[in-house]
Computed example of a mutant assay.
Amino acid sequence: MANYQFLAPFQFNNGVTLKNKVVMAPMTTMSSFYNGKITQDELHYFAARAGGPGMVITSVANVSDNGKGFEGELSAASDDMLPGLRQLAATIKKDGAKAILQIFNAGRKSTSQVLRGETPVSASAIAAEFPPGLETPRALEQEEIDQVIADFGTATRRAIQAGFDGVELHGANTYLLQQFYSPHSNQRTDKWGGDLEKRMRFPLAVIKEVTETIEKYATDSFLLGYRISPEEVETPGIRLEDTLYLAEKIKSQVDYIHLSMGSYKRTSLNDASDKTPILEKFAKRIANEVPLIGIGSVELPADAEEMLDSGADLVAIGRELLREPQWVQKAKIGDEASIRTTMSLADMEELSISGAMQTYLQESFGSVMNFTPNGKKAEDYQSQAAPMEGFEKKL
């Protein structure tokens, strides 16, 4: 067996133990039913990949109907979803992986078409700059903010009842949790807006609600993670130091922090003179206090090893697990030569990728998937944002 450090077990501070340090990153499948219920296509997709990683994070599930961001999105917004969520958790856990349900509210990154005529909501009535053309959202009222916070708690209760091992709050990729923290999308004058500390109140309130739900319904072995985007490119917008500060504030309140970047080698998008990789900055700031999940452009075992050497505690793999569902198994037996780093349209059935997801990958993420025979090698996202991060910026 190969002697890679990412193959060693990992234990969280609360005692939860993973069989290895590889995490399947949350990836949009576009394959749920119109009402957010799980499909057999999705179950096959997860079943094909769940055998290797120590932990699998699902594609994102909305916590409330007005938080839906796109068609084909998973939902945890009602008890009607419980039967499907139970199937999903069991599918992921069948070979010993821990199952994490990622939950969110899309906020202004949705559309009135997706919301069946309702106007998207956000912290303030300010349209997102990326992608261009999104409509102006409606600012949430105080009672609505309270309801969204409660919805995160209720969705967590459903995750517990469905048999998941944890939830991950999607505070990245410019969705609602990030929108409240951002000076671009949050220009409120009440207690939920203003300076950095006030803009932090909403994500902290959600963490508190979810923590109380876990204490009420789960055991102490249930995980709470938080996914975070290091920077925004808008002006005003979140800068790297703002996010490092947020990580420091929440590190004692969550079980792990999960970065969202196109490359684990990424440096600052706003300060080209700063050559220190963002991963290393986060590792230094929260070292030995809360586990850090690194992410971005891991294709071969050497990449995973380098990420761990750079300060990550766990290695999240996304696109590469689409191309190679047996990545961990092949690394374990030293069969690197057979690891696929490209994706052929002829292999989609074998890879358990649904028709809806195939279209999505080709149309929205063709530039990052290493498609053959006519596709281009994915760009180096060390100095730019990747399409899946919700914004655009090149140095």
Rank of each mutant, 00 (worst) to 15 (best):
P230A: 03
P230G: 01
E232M: 02
E232A: 01
T235Q: 15
T235A: 11
P236H: 06
R239C: 05
R239P: 04
Y245P: 02
E248Y: 09
K249H: 12
I250H: 08
S252M: 09
D255W: 10
Y256F: 15
S260L: 03
S263Q: 04
Y264K: 00
K265W: 13
K265G: 03
R266A: 15
S268I: 10
L269W: 13
N270D: 10
S273G: 15
S273L: 15
K275P: 01
K275C: 06
P277R: 07
P277T: 04
L279C: 02
K281E: 06
F282M: 00
K284T: 14
N288R: 12
E289G: 06
E289A: 11
V290Q: 01
P291R: 03
L292M: 02
I293M: 06
G294N: 08
S297D: 09
E299K: 14
L300S: 13
A302C: 09
D303W: 07
E306F: 12
E306Q: 14
M307F: 10
L308F: 08
S310Q: 12
A312G: 00
D313L: 03
V315P: 02
I317R: 08
R319H: 11
R319C: 03
E320G: 03
L322M: 10
R323P: 01
Q326S: 14
I333W: 13
G334R: 08
G334F: 10
D335T: 06
E336L: 12
E336N: 13
A337E: 14
A337V: 10
I339V: 04
I339G: 01
I339M: 04
T341V: 10
T341S: 11
T342K: 11
S344G: 09
S344D: 13
L345R: 14
